[in-house]
């Protein structure tokens, strides 16, 4: 869900930009030069993943996977997802320019939150339990994104409150899909390449 230019009130847009700047600075500070290739390649794979359409009933949804991004990247999710959003805005016209900060916060803040909540459990223990927590992370990050979008809309004006509620409802089915997918992805990566989650330096 990209919010477009002109929809939100100025305080929300400016607040979002400030928080995004802080998050990006934090992520870059914790991103050693040696990890930039890895972060870039992961950022590119999340960009590709966001183009995957998954069937749900008669319709289909595209993936966001910010939970998975958070689990793998930690704070680096902020700059990585910002870059992906910037490229989407500039070359596809999705989202906008002045709302880039807000959109980054909506996607990346839940990713970082999920990293601190779920990544420690996912690193150790049996893969099956890690997969369950991966599912929790996928659902939680998307739920947080939905709440943040609704919050940004509601802060903008009372007239947006019904739209904000609609956004929350619309996020529910996507939440289930993302939970299942993230769980399966964690299951596989824990077995094939457990180091993916071991990057302490990302944290």
């Amino acid at each position: 869900m990209h919010i477009v230019d002109g929809a939100l009130s100025n305080p929300v847009v400016i607040g979002g930009a400030v928080v995004a700047l802080g998050g990006i600075a934090m992520g870059l500070k914790r991103l050693p030069v040696e990890r930039i290739p890895a972060a870039g390649v992961l950022s590119a794979s999340f960009f590709i993943a966001s183009l995957i359409h998954v069937p749900i009933g008669p319709s289909s949804v595209h993936l966001i996977l910010n939970g998975m991004a958070g689990l793998v990247l930690g704070w680096a999710a902020f700059p990585a997802l910002f870059v992906a959003l910037l490229l989407q805005a500039v070359f596809f016209g999705f989202g906008g320019l002045t709302v880039l900060g807000v959109n980054t916060v909506l996607i990346a803040a839940p990713a970082v939150a999920v990293h601190f909540l779920c990544a420690p459990v996912i690193r150790k223990g049996p893969a099956r339990r890690a997969a369950v927590w991966g599912g929790v992370a996928g659902a939680a990050s998307l739920a947080m994104t939905g709440v943040l979008v609704a919050f940004a809309l509601a802060l903008t004006g009372d007239a947006f409150v019904p739209a904000a509620k609609l956004v929350l409802v619309a996020h529910a089915p996507v939440m289930v899909i993302e939970a299942l997918l993230t769980g399966a992805a964690v299951m596989l990566t824990r077995q094939v390449k457990p180091e993916l989650f071991m990057k302490e330096a990302w944290g």
Binding site: S45, I52, A185, M187, E195
Partner: peptide, 15 residues
Amino acid sequence: RSYGYLVGMMLVRAI
């Protein structure tokens, strides 16, 4: 589950 494995495998190959 297949899509999840696909995403996971993409990340593994990427890293």
